[in-house]
């Protein structure tokens, strides 16, 4: 059983992801925004972080940036976003090597990805530098963004 933190401001999506992961037998921590997620991670390290990007207050990117050096996420980070076509966001996520699931997403795929991260061979990434890469998952999907996108 792994501990998974889900940070998502949309209550329907949060509830759905939690439901799926619990049915897979994971312990799920729920956070409605980045600040809550940070507090939960401070409290206890998690295996996988599933986070939205666009959240009130501390958003997903700030959350990941904050937790990266702390190695409080052992297996990897999965980012759910409907801003995956945003150049800057895409670039930052790619630099960190986190898994990206564009919204709308398939909960089946998400649970598979979480399973892959959790069951990945080898030691968990202690350094926390590249949590996503350490997981060895392949589900990285980018769609070329349209030109002339405005800044965030």
């Amino acid at each position: 059983m792994s501990r998974i933190l889900v940070a998502e401001d949309d209550p329907h999506i949060l509830r759905l992801i939690a439901m799926w992961l619990r049915r897979q037998g994971h312990e799920v921590l729920e956070a409605r925004h980045g600040a809550a997620a940070l507090a939960l991670i401070e409290e206890q390290a998690v295996d996988v972080l599933v986070s939205d990007v666009n959240m009130p207050g501390v958003d997903g990117l700030e959350l990941i940036e904050a937790i990266l050096p702390q190695s409080r996420v052992r297996r990897g980070v999965i980012v759910l976003t409907n801003r995956w076509d945003h150049g800057e966001i895409r670039e930052r996520l790619a630099r960190w090597g986190v898994q990206v699931m564009p919204k709308p997403f398939s909960p089946t795929r998400l649970s598979e990805l979480v399973e892959a991260l959790v069951r990945a061979e080898g030691e968990p990434a202690e350094s926390g530098e590249n949590p996503g890469l350490a997981a060895g998952a392949t589900e990285v999907q980018f769609v070329p963004p349209p030109a002339n996108l405005p800044p965030a």
Binding site: P104, F105, S106, N148
Partner: peptide, 25 residues
């Protein structure tokens, strides 16, 4: 126009995401 489209797609994806995920469930 791009800005508008960007916002529109973003706003449309939010309910679509829920519908898609719950329907798949």
């Amino acid at each position: 126009r791009d800005n508008f489209l960007y916002h529109v797609t973003h706003e449309l994806r939010t309910p679509l995401t829920s519908i898609h995920a719950y329907a798949e469930t």
